[in-house]
Amino acid sequence: MPGGGPEMDDYMETLKDEEDALWENVECNRHMLSRYINPAKLTPYLRQCKVIDEQDEDEVLNAPMLPSKINRAGRLLDILHTKGQRGYVVFLESLEFYYPELYKLVTGKEPTRRFSTIVVEEGHEGLTHFLMNEVIKLQQQMKAKDLQRCELLARLRQLEDEKKQMTLTRVELLTFQERYYKMKEERDSYNDELVKVKDDNYNLAMRYAQLSEEKNMAVMRSRDLQLEIDQLKHRLNKMEEECKLERNQSLKLKNDIENRPKKEQVLELERENEMLKTKNQELQSIIQAGKRSLPDSDKAILDILEHDRKEALEDRQELVNRIYNLQEEARQAEELRDKYLEEKEDLELKCSTLGKDCEMYKHRMNTVMLQLEEVERERDQAFHSRDEAQTQYSQCLIEKDKYRKQIRELEEKNDEMRIEMVRREACIVNLESKLRRLSKDSNNLDQSLPRNLPVTIISQDFGDASPRTNGQEADDSSTSEESPEDSKYFLPYHPPQRRMNLKGIQLQRAKS
């Protein structure tokens, strides 16, 4: 015994090295194993092979420090690593049964499904019991997946119906949107047309105001020219009257000059006056001389005659003075006559000038009245044309509004008919989907599995289990394997941990 101590140590070291070499393959693929292994699927088989106990299973599945599946799978690998070579062998058998691809990844061999460990530990009855539990578990999982698949199909059909409904609603909204954009385009076109009409109206108003201003300026210029013409006519008439007055005065002077006595007659009258003065002096001298030589009687007679002569001279002087006064009065009367005649001529000139001015103003008033009548006639014609244009424009607008209203009513009726057609199509689609759903539900009910399987069917299934373990590994792997896509769409199922009653199965096998 003492001599065998070193050999035992060498043997233990060799086993430990082999164990480390075995687990080295697992550690190399630890990331892939932790990512894809579900500990809840492996722990029943590991407990059946007595590699882990209930406490280890509870620690792996329910520990609060292991929230994710990767953490739980890593903890399970750590626990199996502590179990040595047996933990490695049982772990590979569980991978061979549940995850053939991972088994091939770790060992590089094809899975054979021999279950040597569980046969050694529990015997064939334990293997049968384990396989029966796994089959029931798989059936329950398949039923749950079928239910989930039916629910998802129903949800899918519902979503398809909602999608069709949303599509129809979208078509309806597109119809309304198209109608909205069309009405918006019509409104924009009408606004552009309105702005264009306003611009045209403004341009016409500006043109009309400009023409009116030009016409008023032309009328004012015409009036100024007419006033200048009238003033020139007035000056012409005044000059004609002055010329006529000057002509009359010149004719009067000419007549006075023609009626003036001649120079010879004046000289002859002056000679006669001198001769008479000479004779008068001679007679006076004779009379003076006679007075001195005459007697007293003759002197008395001469005195009487002288007195008579003096009286006659006085009378004559009075007559001469009277004649002079009369001549002066006649001259003054002639001057007054000439003055009055001049005033008369001036008044006649003024009267004729005023008459011509009156005629001029009368003509001017007639011209202004004619212009006013023409302006009123043009204004009435413009008003009439404007009223006709406004009436025609309003009539066109009324007809346009009428046609637009008819078009809008027809478009609304068309839209309502399209919407009604879309709604009826939606109703038809809904009815078809309901009919299809009812038909599929009836087919699913016919094809669904019963909840409680008979014992004979279970025994028959387990009677055929042994050949399947040898020759149909691919079928078992397809039913027991969970793909990543299934984990996305289906909830994980945790079967209840219970042991099955095998009395009925044993009785059935005894009868057979």
Results as ranks from 00 to 15, higher is better:
D17S: 10
R75Q: 07
P6N: 13
I70C: 09
I52L: 10
L127M: 15
F91V: 05
V119G: 08
E59T: 00
T14E: 12
L46C: 04
N62H: 11
T128E: 14
R86A: 14
H129S: 08
E121R: 13
L127I: 15
H81S: 07
H124E: 15
P64F: 06
E18I: 11
D9E: 14
A63C: 14
N71K: 03
G126M: 15
H31S: 08
A21M: 09
C49N: 15
G87C: 03
E54G: 04
P39K: 01
M12L: 12
T14Q: 12
V120M: 06
Y11C: 12
V51E: 04
G108N: 12
S68H: 02
E13R: 11
L46S: 01
Q85K: 12
D10K: 11
D10I: 10
F115Y: 15
R47Y: 03
I52A: 00
H81W: 04
R114H: 14
D9L: 09
D9P: 14
P44K: 03
N25T: 08
F115G: 12
G5N: 14
R72V: 01
N133C: 14
E54D: 06
E24G: 08
P44G: 05
T14C: 12
V120L: 05
G5M: 12
S94E: 03
N38D: 04
I118H: 14
Y45R: 03
A144C: 09
P6A: 12
L76M: 09
M12F: 12
E24Q: 11
Q55P: 07
M12S: 10
G4H: 10
A144Q: 13
K16Q: 11
E13I: 13
L42T: 01
I136V: 13
P64D: 00
R30V: 00
I136H: 11
Q48I: 03
V26L: 07
E134K: 08
T43R: 02
D20Q: 13
D58V: 05
H81E: 07
K137H: 07
V89E: 14
K41I: 02
C49P: 01
H124D: 15
Y45G: 02
I70E: 02
P39R: 01
E27L: 04
C28S: 09
N29P: 00
D53V: 01
Q139V: 14
Q140V: 10
G87A: 07
R86S: 10
M12T: 11
P44R: 01
K16W: 12
Y45M: 08
P6H: 12
E7M: 11
I70L: 05
E93T: 09
E19R: 11
E18V: 12
M12R: 11
H31W: 11
L80H: 04
H129Y: 13
E54R: 05
P6L: 14
K145S: 11
T117E: 15
K16R: 13
T43I: 02
K83F: 04
V119A: 14
Q140C: 09
S34L: 06
R72S: 00
A40M: 04
K145F: 09
I136E: 10
G5F: 10
Y98R: 02
L105Q: 03
L92W: 04
G126E: 15
T112D: 15
L92V: 15
L15H: 12
Y45W: 06
